[in-house]
């Protein structure tokens, strides 16, 4: 925990680094520049700025956007979080629903046609840029079949179908790569587990194939997979950043990229911080899950 706390501290520390220069490069006259610098408190020493920002963030105050309406960054981020979270959750569910059966099938029927097929699709999923898959989905389901809306987001309060129909394409675009990684991991770790002595014991007890696979093999095979899921969260997040921009979903990724385009430095800062916090947090949850699944691991 201490390590994570230190990490988060340094993470914040790194964020308010250099974008000051990048931001100023675009603003107009020297006077306007001076005024802007003073308004943002950028004339103060870096340490003072950092302290102000840091204490602000701890109280949930990320400063105000310096572009357009001067909306508080916290509000912008709060608007974006549910969108990114729904998207990430749905992508995750899609990935697991595809990956777990695919991985089990290809491990239990090693070198069968099904295994070769799964492995081929896993390679495709790994190699396909998520934004390209998104575009292909739009061409098929929005432009030609007109089944699904091509852009935007609808909150759950508009109805489940509305919400789902806006999210399903981006979620598939993000989830495919994710599921490919997990399916491959489940396959190789299942193959190892199936060789284990306790599997032979289970077979000699006369257990059925399904009980053996689901009760004995799968839980043990999942242990290494869980670690990979933690690492693969990075993929989910980067996927969300890019794919949100394809579908014009104003989630964290869209906010981040628009912030960069507008040189809206507090927004970029807040978005990067939040995205990384999400990443660190999800990895922490994975670590804790690890102990739940594997009783040999105990955190004191």
């Amino acid at each position: 925990m201490l390590a994570v706390a230190t990490l988060v501290f340094f993470m914040i520390r790194l964020v308010p680094g250099d974008p000051i220069g990048a931001m100023l490069a675009d603003s107009g006259s020297p006077e306007a520049r001076e005024a802007l610098i003073r308004r943002l408190g950028l004339d103060q020493p870096l340490i003072v700025q950092f302290w102000k920002w840091f204490t602000g963030v701890l109280q949930g105050d990320f400063g105000a956007s310096i572009y357009g309406s001067n909306q508080p960054v916290a509000d912008i981020l709060m608007n974006a979080i549910p969108k990114t979270l729904s998207l990430a959750l749905l992508s995750f569910i899609i990935a697991i629903v595809i990956a777990v059966p695919a991985g089990i099938i290809s491990a239990t029927r090693k070198n069968s046609a099904a295994d070769v097929g799964v492995s081929f699709f896993a390679f495709l999923g790994l190699s396909m840029p998520d934004f390209w898959l998104a575009i292909i989905l739009i061409i098929i389901f929005a432009a030609n079949l007109q089944w699904l809306p091509a852009i935007g987001y609808a909150p759950l309060s508009d109805g489940v179908w509305e919400w789902f129909s806006h999210l399903i394409m981006p979620a598939i675009a993000i989830g495919t790569g994710f599921s490919a990684i997990i399916a491959r991991m489940i396959r190789s770790s299942m193959l190892e587990v199936l060789q284990a002595d306790y599997m032979r014991t289970a077979a000699s007890k006369g257990l059925t194939q399904n009980v053996m696979l689901l009760r004995h093999a799968l839980p043990n095979a999942l242990i290494p997979v869980i670690t990979v899921i933690g690492i693969a969260f990075a993929l989910l997040i980067s996927g969300a950043v890019v794919v949100e921009n394809v579908f014009s979903i104003k989630g964290l990724g869209r906010v981040l990229i628009q912030g960069i385009q507008n040189r809206d430095y507090p927004v970029v800062q807040g978005a990067v911080l939040l995205v990384s916090a999400f990443f660190v947090l999800s990895n922490l949850i994975v670590d804790l899950l690890y102990a739940v699944i594997d009783p040999r691991i105990r955190y004191s």
Binding site: L7, V8, F10, M11, L14, G17, D18, P19, G21, A22, F233, A234, L235, I237, S238, V241, L256, I257, I260, V268, V272, V275, S276, F279, V280
Partner: peptide, 17 residues
Amino acid sequence: LQWAFPNFIIAVYLVAV
């Protein structure tokens, strides 16, 4: 420290800066 950020976010951030 670098591990705390997804790789792609690092790249996006550096290019932004």
